[in-house]
Lab assay of single mutants.
Amino acid sequence: YKIYPYDSLIVTNSISVKLPKDVDRTRLERHLSPEEFQEVFGMSIEEFDRLALWKRNDLKKKALLF
């Protein structure tokens, strides 16, 4: 996945969300650098992957990456 800054990946309720063209809309968190991922989620990507799907989705919603 290509890395993008968190600010360019957050999704708000506005209709005209302009995400970069090559971003996987269903896995926005994968486009964060490991350092920024840790900062946003408070855990590593590996720890995040071990969580239940509902928990990952809940965290993504709170981080505006859903």
Rank of each mutant, 00 (worst) to 15 (best):
K62E: 09
M43A: 02
I10T: 07
V17N: 15
D7N: 14
V17E: 14
W54M: 08
L32P: 00
R27A: 11
I15Q: 15
D22V: 04
K55I: 13
Y1S: 09
Y6L: 05
V40T: 06
E39G: 10
L65Y: 01
P20Q: 05
T12H: 12
R27M: 09
I10H: 04
K61R: 11
H31K: 02
S14M: 12
S33W: 03
P34L: 12
N57V: 14
R56Y: 03
Y6P: 01
E35M: 11
R27L: 07
K2I: 13
Y1V: 15
E39N: 12
L59I: 05
L19V: 07
L53P: 10
L32S: 00
S14V: 11
D7I: 15
Y6S: 01
L32E: 00
I10P: 00
D24P: 02
K60T: 02
R50L: 14
V11D: 06
S14K: 10
I15N: 15
S33K: 05
A52Y: 07
L51R: 03
S16C: 15
T26A: 13
I10G: 02
F41P: 00
A63S: 06
V40Q: 06
Y4K: 01
R25A: 15
D22Q: 05
S14W: 06
A52Q: 10
Y1D: 08
K18L: 12
F48V: 00
S14D: 15
A63I: 03
F66L: 11
K62D: 08
L28H: 01
V17H: 14
K2T: 14
V11F: 09
P20F: 05
V11K: 06
V17F: 03
I3G: 03
R56V: 04
V11R: 08
E46L: 12
A52M: 08
M43G: 01
R30T: 03
Q38G: 11
H31V: 01
F37M: 07
L19S: 06
H31I: 01
P34S: 12
K2W: 06
S33Q: 04
G42E: 10
L32V: 03
R27G: 05
E46A: 13
R30K: 09
Y4R: 00
E47M: 11
D58S: 11
R56P: 01
Y4M: 04
E35T: 12
D24V: 07
Y1I: 15
N13A: 11
R56W: 02
Y6H: 02
S8H: 10
L9F: 02
T12P: 09
R25Q: 12
K60W: 01
K18Y: 06
V23W: 02
P20G: 06
R25G: 07
E36F: 03
L51M: 09
L28G: 01
A63D: 01
V40L: 07
D22F: 05
R27Q: 11
E46Q: 12
K62H: 09
Q38W: 14
K2A: 14
E39W: 14
D24Y: 05
L19I: 08
V23K: 01
L9E: 01
Y6I: 03
L28M: 05
V17G: 15
K2M: 10
Y6A: 02
R50Q: 13
L32M: 04
